[in-house]
Amino acid sequence: MMISVKDFSFSIGGKQILFDVAFDLPKGAYLSILGPNGAGKSTLLKCLLRLHEKGTAKGSILIDGKPLEGYSQKGLARLISYVPQAGGWIPPFTVQELSKLSRFPYISGLSGLTKKDVEAVDRALETTGLTAMRDRPLKTLSGGERQKAFLAAAVAQETPIMLLDEPASFLDPHHTSEMEKLLIRLNQEQGLSMIAVTHDLNHPAKTKGLALILRKGRVMYFGDVPGLLGKGVLEEAFDHQFVYLENPKSGLPVILAE
């Protein structure tokens, strides 16, 4: 599943938010979208999910060469799953019920879940380590566990592409690291293409993936992490100075804000 964004511009209510965004994402890539607040990261993510109906788009977003508008709602849901930002509305469901809802794109008409659907849900809960918590209502979980439940629901959707809106914000270091490991595993072992909006500048290095840096709605950088370091890109994007170190344990680059 290759995603290709071509000269994509987007405006809402006369205010232009994205300007000629263009990039090609190969199958199985892990893309982190970075940028200062208000740069248009979430808008780009929502456009990729086709969640923005109010607004005018120019240019195109193609998945496997087919424009996004060409997919039916369920067809798109079989291609792209979505993990919302933590800290939003908590649905009144249990962990397992939330994952079961993700099987909607595979259900036709009034029929219920098939054996295949139930197995997919079970697998998703196992992958995310939530099998023991399956019957717990989301409201009774900690923030970290709940975010994992949303991830499990996206996994249960069995899509080749997963989109995440700040998957690890509001989580403590332990849960952040657990979440990251899960996402990396999904990408590297199961071959899912991931696109994550994040404020964590070190996320792309940890995922060994690509970074896209937005500033004022324009792409400032698109490429791998080594190409990003020490070239003043981050400094210009965030209007701030950074220090570049190396993690003595993992050998990965670490970016610190001064």
Binding site: Q73, I80, P84, P91, F93
Partner: peptide, 16 residues
């Protein structure tokens, strides 16, 4: 059911 889980989530699960 899906709308109860939130409109964006519902749309991303294939609900019109």
């Amino acid at each position: 059911d899906l709308l109860t889980a939130g409109e964006e989530l519902a749309a991303s699960r294939g609900v019109k």
